[in-house]
């Protein structure tokens, strides 16, 4: 999860960064399940993995894909 967070920060391709945040959410929902919080895990899986990712992808498609320095 920490690796996915660092990758999402350093990569220049914004689509890959979005996939990185999606991976963070996926790992987070598994961790929530292991911490005996199934409600929160379900919410995180539905909102963080699916909806949030698609909103980022739409925003990237409407703007520029690559981050330049």
């Amino acid at each position: 999860m920490i690796g996915a967070a660092i990758y999402a920060i350093i990569t220049k391709d914004l689509i890959f960064a979005t996939i990185g945040t999606s991976l963070i959410s996926l790992a987070l929902s598994v961790i929530f399940y292991l911490l005996h919080a199934p409600d929160v895990a379900l919410t995180e899986a539905a909102i963080g993995v699916a909806l949030s990712t698609i909103v980022f992808v739409i925003a990237v498609r409407n703007t520029k894909r690559y981050e330049e320095d």
Binding site: A5, A8, I9, L14, A17, T18, G20, T21, I24, S25, L28, I31, F32, L35, H36, A37, V40, E44, G48, S52, F56, A59, V60, T63, E67, D69
Partner: peptide, 28 residues
């Protein structure tokens, strides 16, 4: 540190995840 606006929003969302994890871990 980031200059790109979408990267800033990604940073906000990552911050959110970290804080949620902290809160749930406190209740375990």
């Amino acid at each position: 540190t980031k200059k790109n606006l979408i990267k800033i929003v990604i940073g906000l969302s990552i911050m959110d995840s970290g804080f949620n994890l902290l809160l749930v871990a406190l209740g375990y």
